[in-house]
Design a protein around this nucleic acid. Structure first.
Lengths: 156, 156
DNA sequence: CGTTCTTCGTTGCAAACGCAACCACTATTG
DNA sequence: CAATAGTGGTTGCGTTTGCAACGAAGAACG
């Protein structure tokens, strides 16, 4: 079999994964004590709740893309830290609705400057219109991938 | 304090992390049994070795962005599976050089079609020139972030 | 209604992870 | 060339993770 030509640097799978990890890691370093005890799963959950408070636990599972058990225990942890509360949905008692506490909402204001500072440094000197297109493409990919997750295409 | 306006969908940290995870997850599903027993850390290591065989273990630590212990044990696992070999570098006996076995190289050919199929589906209908710009921006970010990792800027 | 099927959250378990302490080897300095 | 500092890899420990089995609540069907 011929050698497969494949350069990961040309692959969006590789690039998004590595850049994502590096950015998270950079922001985490900047934040230092501000994120004491907050793991990447916790951050993922928080970001979702910052977008929309009161999500169902199941929404977080599909959004953060981790196991339900993992999310359950991460929420348990966040609840202990006083960052979120979990309430049974009385309209459908199977669901639990997750709400940020004041402390949880405050964390957003704490994290934001670190994230902005990191992005500014990394993107310095990049043509803004190219960055805009990059975001646009990623947003479209994100949308399509999450939709696919909801309605998986049966094997053909 | 005023409410912080922040939409994660505008943030490259959020987008790269989520899209990266979703793509990996999609490819993993497609690959099925082909990646039996291969975790994300393993895949990260393999991709690096596919780019350049015979890397030092330390190179993998900084590239995959995981703890040295984690990489050490992942390599131990891959070695047991007969996918890589580890040899002490006689030029500097502190280093260990990691080489793909034939089985390890073969995995590249196995994974590639899954990755390509996934990307094709996700990017269907996207303007190619926009995708190209997206990759270009990510590549630049990747380069800058890894360089920063090697030569961290002292706190100012 | 009662039975069955599905969805959502929890829990037990083994594997993987990050952190820190450690050992082996090399480089640097006097 | 001896003493010290620095780099690379391993190992122990507590925590997190994914998987699978389970239980509780609602939906669908007769």
């Amino acid at each position: 079999m011929a050698e497969q030509p494949y350069n990961p640097l040309d692959s969006l799978v590789f690039l998004t994964n590595r850049v994502g990890r590096l950015l998270s890691s950079d922001i985490r370093k900047r934040a230092g004590d501000d994120v004491e005890g907050l793991y990447s799963t916790h951050m993922g959950i928080l970001v979702d709740l910052w977008m929309q408070d009161g999500l169902r636990q199941q929404d977080l599972v599909s959004s953060v893309i981790k196991d339900k058990g993992t999310i359950a225990r991460a929420l348990e942890n966040l609840e202990k830290q006083g960052i979120v509360t979990r309430e049974t949905d009385e309209a459908d008692r199977r669901n639990k609705l997750i709400y940020l506490t004041q402390k949880g909402r405050k964390l957003k204001a704490v994290m934001l400057p670190h994230a902005l500072a990191s992005m500014e440094e990394v993107l310095e000197g990049f043509p803004p219109e190219e960055v805009a297109i990059c975001k646009k493409v990623l947003r479209r990919m994100y949308k399509r991938l999450t939709q696919k997750l909801m309605h998986p295409v049966p094997a053909t």
